[in-house]
Design a binder for these strands. Structure first.
Lengths: 145, 145
DNA sequence: CCTTGACCCTCCAGTGGCTGGAAGGATTAG
DNA sequence: CTAATCCTTCCAGCCACTGGAGGGTCAAGG
């Protein structure tokens, strides 16, 4: 298989597949003309990668997951730990986004959105921080990342 | 004020403040010795930026928000539109993450996590896609981004 | 045999929003 | 005077691609 075909079958852009080779996640053979020649095993690996990336695992996580996959003596605990840590990170990101969302949606709905210059969104962004103990009703969002 | 003081007062790293100057979000004066000299207005702008970034607005959004803030003839609608679009993007990101979260948490809880090699997480990542119409009970997650 | 078009190759640069570090000048406390 | 703490600029790196330039290869049609 050439790269175009695996790209279609794995559902990944050819550029991404070349990148995965560059970082050592796959090692396709080469035809004499220099074209990459993908085996079914390569395709399978790429599909695995597509799924793992789709679940938000980093490239480094993917590397580890693939090496565990290749290792018949692996322990399920190692796989589970990686996934559990990743799950926690996802939860943290969701929580951060929900904090933003709460503030933003309050701001958006408090703004008339007419053609006058007075706008609660700008007022909140420009506010001088309320003195401790009397928190503003708006902008309870944290500053995570 | 030197950069160290504004950094403390605005709650932003000095590096970030230099970066904001580089991309034209602030234009502090310079002392004869080359040090940046921040006015109260600069500090106010930086606090505004810190809040906007904390709500997840991009640098380009921040640039626009600041220019609207500076413009006494602005329309609240313009501000609102920016925030509303951003809110939608946040919602999309939350939805994507929740999709991942659902699959991941199912996988994690289905894995015994012992020292045996059999692991439902790897099995799911390595699966051959189920034929159409008979979706796997696992991995309903989309592949957004 | 030649052309056309669809492939494929490599290499380089850019994305966003910082962050780290090197190398050096300015200021301040002791 | 010295040492510590600031400040400066510039360059490189992060992540995971993505776009594009410039060129080679291959299969089909004339």
């Amino acid at each position: 298989m050439n790269i175009g075909e695996v790209a279609t079958r794995a559902g990944l852009p050819a550029k991404t597949i070349r990148y995965y080779e560059e970082v050592g996640l796959i090692r396709p053979r080469r035809d004499p003309n220099g074209y990459r020649a993908f085996s079914d095993a390569d395709l399978h690996r790429l599909a695995f990668l597509g799924r793992a990336r789709g679940l938000g695992f980093s490239i480094e996580d993917c590397r580890t997951l693939l090496s565990l996959y290749d290792d018949p003596g692996r322990a399920a605990a190692d796989v589970r730990r990686i996934a559990a840590v990743h799950l926690e990170q996802i939860d943290a990101r969701i929580a951060a986004l929900q904090g933003m969302r709460a503030t933003l949606s309050e701001l958006v709905s408090s703004c008339a959105g007419d053609n006058r210059p007075d706008c609660p969104i700008l007022r909140d962004l420009a506010r001088t921080d309320p003195p401790d103990g009397a928190p503003s009703p708006l902008s309870p969002a944290a500053r995570p990342r």
